[in-house]
Structure formats: C-alpha cells, structure tokens
Design a protein around this nucleic acid. Sequence first.
RNA 1: GGCGCAUUCGUCUAGCGGCCUAGGACACCUCCCUCUCAAGGAGGAGAUCACCGGUUCGAAUCCGGUAUGCGCUACCA
Length: 489
Amino acid sequence: MTKQVRVRFAPSPTGYPHVGNIRTALFNWLFARHSGGKFIVRIEDTDVARKVDDALEAILEGLKWLGLDWDEGPEVGGDYGPYFQSQRLSLYREAAERLIRQGNAYYCYCSSQRLKEMREEQARRKQPPGYDRRCRNLSEAERAQKEAEGITPVVRFKTPLDGSTRFNDLIWGEVVFDHSTIDDLVLLKSDGYPTYHLANVVDDHLMEISHVLRAEEWLSSTPRHLLMYHALGFEPPQFAHLPMILGDDRAKLSKRHGSVSITEYREQGYLPETMLNFLTLLGWSLDDKTEIFSRIELTASFSLERISRTGAIFNQEKLNWMNGAYIRSLSPDDFTRRALPFLEKGLPDKVRRPLSMDYVRKVMPLVQERARTLAEIPELTEFFFTDELDYEPGLLIVKKMDRESSIQALVAVRNRIEHLQTFDTMSLETAVRPLADEMGLKTGQLFGTLRVATTGRMVAPPLFETMAALGKERSMERVSAALSKLRSL
RNA sequence: GGCGCAUUCGUCUAGCGGCCUAGGACACCUCCCUCUCAAGGAGGAGAUCACCGGUUCGAAUCCGGUAUGCGCUACCA
C-alpha cells in the first residue's frame, strides 16, 4: 500500500515567477496529476526583508495562466492550512523549542558582526567557511549573562560532529555527505521567523508531503533536512532534485539573459500550451522523437525516471519555432480570439477602436501560419487597418520594370477589377493572373507591383486573399493612390 | 578553499555492453512547391560520445584518474 502522492510548490514571494521556478512547479504538478495525487501551493514568506509586494499575485497568475491548478493552497484552502508560513510561526517555534529540549539545538548569541568577521578570517586562511560553534556549549551562567545583555538569540541546529548522511535521490541516485562539512545552521532567526530549513521540514511533515521535487541547488542542503527529520522523529519524504535551467552562457538563467518571468512570455505573445510543452522538455523527454505534447499527453507520460541530470540551456529559437507550431494548430476562431487583445494593444493609435470583429475575422487567417508570436500580429497586419499607406513610391517599381510599365500594369489591373461583381480570391485570380501574360510580364513582376500598391510592402500574405479581405473599395483606392504616387515621380 | 554533482552535433535530447559507420528536434545550407513571406516536401552539413587509462571478445554505455562546468558553503530562499 503506497501512500498517496502529495507534492508541493513552495515559492517565496521575493521576486517574479522565474521560468526556473515555474518549471519546478510544472514538474510537481505533472507528477501529481500523473499519479492521481495532490498538488499543493505553499507560500514561503519568511523573508520579511526581501518580500516584494505583488510577487505573490504574479506567481499565482503565472500558475493559472499555464493551467497548473492546485488542490490546496492560497485561494482554495485545504485541510492542512494555513498555507502561508507567516501564519504558522508558532509551529516552527514549538519545533525549535523541542529540539532545544532534546539537546538537538541551542541558542546562539553571536552578533552578525562577529559572524562576518569570522567568515572573512576563514576566507583569508582559505579554510572552509562555517559557524565555529562558539555558542554550542555555553554554560547556564554564560547564557544568563548574554540574556542579561539583552541579546536576542537565534536557534541553531546541533549538527553531529562526525558520521555521514546518505540518501537516495530519485533522480541523482545515492548521495553521501559527511557531517563534518555541515555547520550548525540557523533554524530560528532573531526576528522570530524560521529559516527555510526549519519551516520546510516542519511543513512538509505536517502537510504530509510524500515527494519533494525541487531545484538542484537544494541538493547539498538535503542532509541537513534529513538530520532534522530524524531529530524531530518525522519520517522524511522522498527527494528528487531537478536540473537547472541555464542561460545561453551556461550560467544560471537570470535577468541579463532577457525575459525570465513567465508573465513576460505571456506579454510577448507566447501561448501557455507552448510554454507548458517547452518547459517540460527542458530536462525531461519521452523518447527520441516526440516533441509536441498536449497537456493530456504530458500528464499521461510524465515520469521521474526520465528526468535528466544536466542543466539545460533555455533555447529561445526553439521556443519560437514551437510557438509557431502551436499557433498554426489553433482553429481560426481560437487564433482570432487570442490575437484580439494583442491587436487592440499593438495597432497604431490612429486605427479606430473597437475593431470590427467581422473584419478581424477575415484578416487573421491570412497571418496565422506566418506568426511566431501573438505580439507580432499587429505589425504583420497593420496595413489592413490603416487608411493611408505610407511607403516609398520607388518600391512600386519592381525588378526589371520602370515607371511607365508599372503605371501601365496598375492601370490594366484597375480596369480589370473595376467591374468585378464578386470580389473574392477566385474571381481576382481569374481576372488578374492572365494579365501578366497579356502584357508580357512575369507574374512576379505584376503581382509584386500590385502587392506594394495594396499593402505598401514587398512582403505580405498572398495577394488575392489580401485584396479580397481588403475589399473592392479599399483595393481600388490603393491602386489609384499608387498610380498618383508613380505619376508624381 | 571545502563538499556535492555533471560532461553525446551550436542548442534541447535519444542511447542504459554488441541493433551506433551515434537517432530525432531547433537553428544553418541546397533543392522542390510558389505572386513575396511563411508553411510544407526532399536532401545536406554538423558529435573522434570532455580527456587519459582500465575492465571486456566487444564501451558513448562499466571502473579509476584528470580537466572543465555548475550548485552549495547567509539570522536568502
């Protein structure tokens, strides 16, 4: 009988939701959903000094955007609450006191000044840094003396002086640490808040967490946690340390690598399903070929065994490709719906709002397979929405043509389409295409001239679809405008 | 400095002793399709599997060492 899987994502609201943190959340969520367990969100707000005001909101928003729903935590509650560590202070104090009573922890009165000097001295002598345990064996009298001086102590864990701790990490295998390399870490700070180490162990136990999936940077503090579990008589959970996400210089991903916050990716027009898929593949793979996974496939096939151990560089190029692939797979309606907010925001101010939905629905399919992000749609389609096209008249004269032949071409086109009853792709095609031959032009030349006349640019969606979307009136106007530009040359 | 971990094409990865003259994907190049751009199709180039030894009939795969990289080494998480 195996225990129910209960995993948690435990962010600290000291910054915005970094893709690295989100990937950790994602793996926890995937693991929970795969095994029918619970996914819990717990807020580790024990660092009062570094707290950032709207970080919590951004973190929860990021999770929701990706569809990482949690079974217990902020906003939803649960039987193991509260889910904010700042509301669980008495629990940590009790645990710390118990450890002191049992002789597994002690009060330390050393000032931060002294600790700083001690570390500097150790660095100078090239000795391993770490607390020198000055307060570990204080007598009652010495303690009373310090108390009388009004010093508020911290509580430190009494790490065994010898021996070692070994554990089996689900991803890294067996790992061993000598106790001699671990110093007496702080459990309770002088402001009464616990450190990560204490709060983590107490909460993971109380919340009956079965597996701790966290970033690799925690690997070396795991023995400390194990020591605490034993001292407190708690059964430790299973550990799985996840490989890190790196920037393109192989260093830990950070601000200077560009976007790192998940909310920035949303703003840049990446789809949540892209991010979900891409982030999962950073450190996990199913086989030697599958790249695109739906949420369902992901949860169905996810497993800890297939997580790799090496840090993965965040490859923006591949993200772009994948986002394009997801955009192409959207239904035209869905694509339009998602593009709309980006259009509202990104189109020039002079374009009248609100946008005509009928028109937007006509235009969007023309760029769906060309967009790599939603944010580039306004730029791609701007000419559909503006009245006046602003371009260099010279652009109208394409390869091996001159002013005269360009004018002739446009005049011919205008005559051809002027009396068109239906102005759709097919009728335009049958009306205009033959013109090239008749005039002794290559289709590329004719179409190129027309393209610039109707869109103001040399690169645009297919000509006739574009003109059909533009409508007869607007197309005619633009051809005429192009003609006067040419004539005034 | 100490401790721990890792190391397969530029990048993400497959590989868990013979199927590997190492497979896939992104990016790159060529060609096809084609009104431009995309998309799509067909090819190509790109990894002496960090290095050096060892084990074995046989190693990318196992062992040891070296190098390099990363993480931790806070009253931060």
